[in-house]
């Protein structure tokens, strides 16, 4: 009898329509004061957490500064390989651009202007998913979530503050990282290039549009995974199963993208944004006190 009743109650709760009816709060506007208060609390705490700060600084530094500089130094030292045949295999736009350059500039332009670009998308994906895991699953693990649920804070405000907590630092780090990369790349390549050669228009599209979209995508995946996980580690493991293929796919796709006309980057950004926002919106709809508290 108990089992039967519990089965029907589960069905009833799974029914989204019933949920929406008794959630007047969902239609209310965001309470900016509350979101700001939550965000500043989480940021203050995160700044003191080595497990958050270190990856936030180290991963971008290695990928965005260390790696390109290494490549540039290597490229500068060796005699330039003959890229003629390689270029022939590349699709139109990029081959056209590169062929126009003097031979010794081709390798640097190819590597620093095109080939490392996909790496830039690893950074937002990794950082945003790590921060989202800390914020959504970590809060359960630290046992601070229940006392938050007992406060007069709307679910949506809480959710938005968590999303911003993961999104804003990610975008900041990606953009600052890119600025550092541009400086580093131009400096090491100066003797050969003799001009400022990054950022190109493709880069701008990649960094301004695609990187935030990818950050939101990683976040969206983590929001959904964290609903099921009880610890950050569990969320990262579950999430990794989705994030790693996504990273590989985005690296692959971006290499392809860069070979095409620049406007494809905008098209891709819109597609990624759309998928990411769908994921996040679904996460918000599921982020009810009842659901969250049932999984504490």
């Amino acid at each position: 009898m108990t089992l039967l009743a519990s089965a029907t109650s589960l069905e009833r709760r799974a029914d989204g329509a019933a949920d929406a009816v008794d959630r007047p709060a969902a239609s209310r506007r965001l309470n900016h004061d509350v979101v700001r208060a939550l965000l500043s609390k989480d940021m203050a705490a995160a700044r003191r957490s080595r497990s958050i700060v270190l990856p936030l600084l180290v991963v971008p530094f290695v990928l965005l500064v260390g790696l390109p500089v290494g490549i540039a130094i290597y490229a500068r030292a060796g005699t330039p390989p003959d890229l003629g045949r390689f270029l022939e295999q590349l699709p139109g736009p990029i081959a056209r651009d590169l062929s126009a350059l003097p031979a010794q500039q081709r390798l640097l332009e190819l590597v620093l202007g095109y080939l490392v670009a996909p790496l830039f998308l690893i950074v937002p994906m990794m950082i945003s998913s790590a921060l989202a895991a800390d914020s959504f699953a970590g809060e359960k693990e630290r046992r601070t979530l229940e006392s938050l649920l007992h406060l007069p804070v709307e679910e949506r405000d809480l959710f938005v503050s968590k999303v911003l907590f993961a999104f804003l630092p990610t975008v900041a780090v990606s953009w600052i990282g890119f600025a550092l990369y541009s400086v580093a790349a131009n400096v090491v390549a100066w003797p050969v290039m003799g001009r400022v050669f990054v950022p190109t228009w493709r880069w701008v599209g990649l960094i301004v549009f695609l990187a935030p979209a990818v950050a939101m995508l990683g976040l969206g995946v983590m929001v959904r995974v964290s609903a099921r996980a009880r610890t950050t580690q569990e969320a990262n493991q579950l999430g990794g199963a989705v994030i790693m293929p996504l990273i590989l796919a985005s690296v692959g796709q971006t290499s392809g993208l860069l070979m095409m006309e620049p406007y494809w980057i905008f098209v891709a950004s819109i597609v990624v944004w759309a998928i990411a926002l769908l994921l996040v919106r679904g996460g918000l709809r599921r982020f009810t006190r009842d659901r969250v508290a049932s999984r504490l």
Binding site: L145, E146, H150
Partner: peptide, 15 residues
């Protein structure tokens, strides 16, 4: 209008 002390104090250790 209510206040709660949960079973687990639920303080943020990093603050």
């Amino acid at each position: 209008r209510t206040g709660v002390v949960t079973e687990n104090a639920g303080l943020d250790d990093r603050l």
